[in-house]
Design a protein around this nucleic acid. Sequence first.
DNA 1: GTGCGGTATGTTTACGTAAACATCATGATT
DNA 2: AATCATGATGTTTACGTAAACATACCGCAC
Lengths: 355, 355
Amino acid sequence: MDEGPAAEQAPHRVKRVSMADVARLAGVSSQTVSRVSNGHAGVVPDTREQVLEAMRELGYRPNSAARALKRGEFRTIGVVLFTLSTTGNVRTLEAIASSAAEEGYAITLLPVAAPTHDEVRGAFTRLGELAVDAFIVIMEVHLLDAATVALPPGVQVAVADSNAGDRYSVVDTDQAGGAGTAVRHLLDLGHRTVWHLAGPEESFAAQRRADTWRAALTDAGRPVPPMIRGDWSADSGYRAGLRLAEEPDCTAVFAANDQMALGLLSALHEKGRAVPEEVSVVGFDDIPEAGSFLPPLTTVHQDFAEVGRRLVQGVLRQLRTESAEPGTTLVPTRLVERASTAPPPAPRQRSGKAV
Amino acid sequence: MDEGPAAEQAPHRVKRVSMADVARLAGVSSQTVSRVSNGHAGVVPDTREQVLEAMRELGYRPNSAARALKRGEFRTIGVVLFTLSTTGNVRTLEAIASSAAEEGYAITLLPVAAPTHDEVRGAFTRLGELAVDAFIVIMEVHLLDAATVALPPGVQVAVADSNAGDRYSVVDTDQAGGAGTAVRHLLDLGHRTVWHLAGPEESFAAQRRADTWRAALTDAGRPVPPMIRGDWSADSGYRAGLRLAEEPDCTAVFAANDQMALGLLSALHEKGRAVPEEVSVVGFDDIPEAGSFLPPLTTVHQDFAEVGRRLVQGVLRQLRTESAEPGTTLVPTRLVERASTAPPPAPRQRSGKAV
DNA sequence: GTGCGGTATGTTTACGTAAACATCATGATT
DNA sequence: AATCATGATGTTTACGTAAACATACCGCAC
């Protein structure tokens, strides 16, 4: 049987070992092999051992396509995202992957080249044909809207970075809580008001942080300085910093993420504005490097791991109950105080043209 | 046909639409549906339109499990990696994902919890059962060795961050070229020698960079200072920086990655050692934030996108030719000069106890 | 010893797709 | 008019697995 005539037929393609091959070698039916393979009861130890031995000898590996076809499930979750260039996405993805692995699920990545409606729609179409039981979307909601039409029915979805809690199961960091804490921290330190270096308009998270910043100032009866827009990059933070350095009134800045805070720090240093003595800076994210910035950055810590975990759990629960669970779950943040914040320079005069 | 008796049988499970359903509605055979679905010729426009209409109406999506079973391929590449916490891995993964997408392949992620032999072996076993045609491994070679036994035969592999070019198809950044350029840049600036802040021992890339650093100094007839070991993190760079700040002879440091360089910068600043006036620092990677460090970091740029692209192309080529292609492909680097390097402080005296 | 319950194992079938082969009409060629 | 190539479409089959059903065998109760 080792050198059967069939062995010659396809020299170029490695014929995979199937249950039938194992069955033949072990002298049992393929159903018995299936039972052993799936750990079902009702196989006498003697037979089981024979089958296992045959599997080992032939190097049998179950064919997942056939298995999926039979079972009707792939044990795989698709993850749609735009980019791996933001810390948040990467960390969330990492958490999703490990949570999924714990549940015996694999992750299939579906990168979307550009955040345009067409691209997103295309991605969803492909995802629909993909070997995936459910998926998790990490992107801005307004793009998701456009793609809704293409959302394959019956496939469960969970979403991050979005406010679509009315239609989907959304898990997100408590943006408002975090931003509020950041602003209040600066106010408590004695700053008259707080400037804001915001993320890009398209980002729900950025918008949420900005809204909260404005509300926190208004609630405290403080003036609201003009908002500055960045694009999450350190570079945009640098450019913003050059502008802010020119504002003598600016003693405190809340940056919407740590990368922009880094650029900001760089620009302030270049312009001779000392942090935190003259200007206090707070970031958002708490990336691992934040503690090594100059000065070490006070920032809002996001628990991306928890977001990822809940995303996976949510989508699996939906899968099991066969029902959607719209609603939003918020993961709390916490402020990590380091060395980039301090009380404002001096009991300044109103018009503040001193120095 | 809309309200057939079969409609009631399974209220809880969404019965997926199959080719047969489409065929019935369109009044053709399922083979014709298959032909339309795969864009084969030999279907009259009239019929084709009818089929497409039926597909649309029923929301037909091909079942990828059945397709994979029939075709014997999944059009999916598995990616094994330890962590998404290093820039290199993330950027490489991103490039892999988009290159693969261009070729019509999806990416399945297989995170390995801990870099132990058991974990790796387990990961490979799982990967063997996964719906994957080939895979790409991003990890240290000595761990790959242990797992070789479990490598499913007939499945093609490409590897990054390894020197296993004799057995696998390896694609890597030209570590030696990059490290050599970095060291020579500092030497050319007039520094007597260059210190090295190395990455962790397990990393092939770290080892390679360290070896090259040593060789470059030796070639130039310069003394080789003791090597300092970090673990890629900014934190370890900070700790190393505290030590280096105590070395009056140290005027130039080559850090094995940008994160460690960041920590180093932070420590040097804290200790009052000016960069680049007193100490020059060169990094490796050129992460997007490197330009915003204080001072902006001179570093070796790695083309991760190219590495990812070649990895995918390599593995697909192997898949098509059904043959392994051991060998190593090196992707060139280039030095990005920013503001963290300068000539050494002064024409110092030999014993250098000045200042 | 006949029948019965239970267990170990074998046989049939279906999952959805697509290759291979079969059929049928149409119109051109003899 | 008979033949044949051509193109459009239908029918059969196989991919590898696992559920459902079938069978064979064992020991025990009557």
